[in-house]
Write a protein that binds this DNA or RNA. Structure first.
Lengths: 228, 228
DNA sequence: CTGGATCCGGGAAGATACTG
DNA sequence: CAGTATCTTCCCGGATCCAG
């Protein structure tokens, strides 16, 4: 009898998602994406595109595997991500944002714009991954020479990075493509790159501080903001 | 000796805010406003303006007092709110958003837009407070008759509500003003009002479902979206 | 009575070992 | 590689108590 009671309790707990219980759009949104790590998981899937478990995990240093599992299940249950067994009958799952998940883009953009000023104040030992920069690049940079032919600038490496395309006045980013042939390639320490993209440091100074540019360095001027 | 060690540990923990430790704007923002309740506290201060502890608490049913205290302290430490002893030497604190706090407006707007479609699916026992509707009103409604003289519509009561002003094509909201003389006054059950403002229910049907309009009901047509 | 501080139980987060 | 199982730690939530 105690067992049946415990089972009952388990089933209740299973269905009972922690909710603010408010009839309010903001609270409803936070019911779904307000938990710790959740929006960062969405960030990873938005940047990297459809990803496997381990790929998501690599972009979230410090997350516990069980927690990542749970969050992905919750997001799946809420229609934010789908979990597909990849083709080839290997049965390896791939996680992909649904349209509903992609719609969180605006939320991430506003968080990014709000958080950007505080990035330089981050602790010195904060971890840096190049692909995280793709969103600031997307939202904060512009193509200052819209009439010139398109250029592709690679930030980072195939391992961890992104390709930025400036064309017709628009800046776009995407995961590194093997078949892309970047006009320029940029690597360097995180804090310096952040300062560079935020216009807090001119390119020459950034290079003096460890940023390496290979290829057509002038392509960078096309998208970098004026130094403040 | 053990005591001194414990004291040391306490001091470290005091300064150590839980952080994702990532050099990323989004993660930095979530370091500050990613904790449970935090953004809802900001919502309350944004809607109600400078408020006392109890006023904030009333807008957050279920929050523990100690947690509200802690969150307000954290927000203060992060420059999002200020805590002032109210004039009159009573020493009663008033909490107010700083400019940095007000800048979270965009984040709340995007969360609201993302969460809005799920509000009708909220549990039946979800709590409703009228002033929460002021943000959807602000972000989702428009003034369809910009050339006519301004109107003020009161939603709810002085206790819990807001005044909506439609003028020159712009919709604005503010806490209920004692000296305001609304053209119309609206009250009713939460779910019906939500449907009404989202354009999911025409006004006549809303009235049939418990919405009460006093004064110039035609003023409502001016701002309500077309029924989908 | 408002604005908190303190204490405690339960549950979520975090770390790690283990398995198909 | 993609999780599951397990254990620990710590935060959240509720009640109670205290001060002005």
């Amino acid at each position: 009898m105690l067992d049946t009671f415990k089972q009952e309790l388990e089933k209740v707990k299973e269905c009972w998602v922690k909710s603010y219980g408010q009839l309010c759009s903001i609270a409803r949104a936070l019911d779904v994406v307000g938990d710790r790590w959740t929006l960062l998981i969405v960030r990873e899937l938005l940047i990297q595109g459809p990803s496997r478990f381990g790929e998501v995990q690599r972009g979230l240093p410090g997350i516990a595997t069980n927690l990542l599992t749970q969050r992905l299940r919750d997001l799946e249950a809420n229609g934010v991500v789908t979990r597909e067994s990849s083709p080839g009958a290997t049965g390896v799952p791939t996680y992909r944002l649904t349209d509903r998940g992609t719609a969180l883009d605006g939320v991430l953009r506003e968080l990014l714009k709000w958080g950007a000023p505080t990035v330089p104040d981050a602790p010195r030992d904060a971890i840096f991954q190049m692909h995280w920069l793709s969103q600031p690049a997307r939202f904060l940079l512009q193509d200052h020479r819209p009439t010139e032919p398109a250029v592709v600038i690679r930030f980072g490496t195939l391992d961890d990075g992104f390709d930025l395309t400036a064309a017709r006045g628009v800046v776009a980013v995407q995961p590194c493509k093997l078949d892309a042939s970047p006009s320029a390639s940029v690597t360097g320490p995180g804090p310096v790159l952040v300062a560079l993209l935020q216009g807090a440091m001119p390119l020459a100074l950034a290079v003096a501080n460890g940023v390496r540019v290979e290829g057509d360095a002038s392509a960078l001027d096309r998208i970098l903001p004026p130094t403040r």
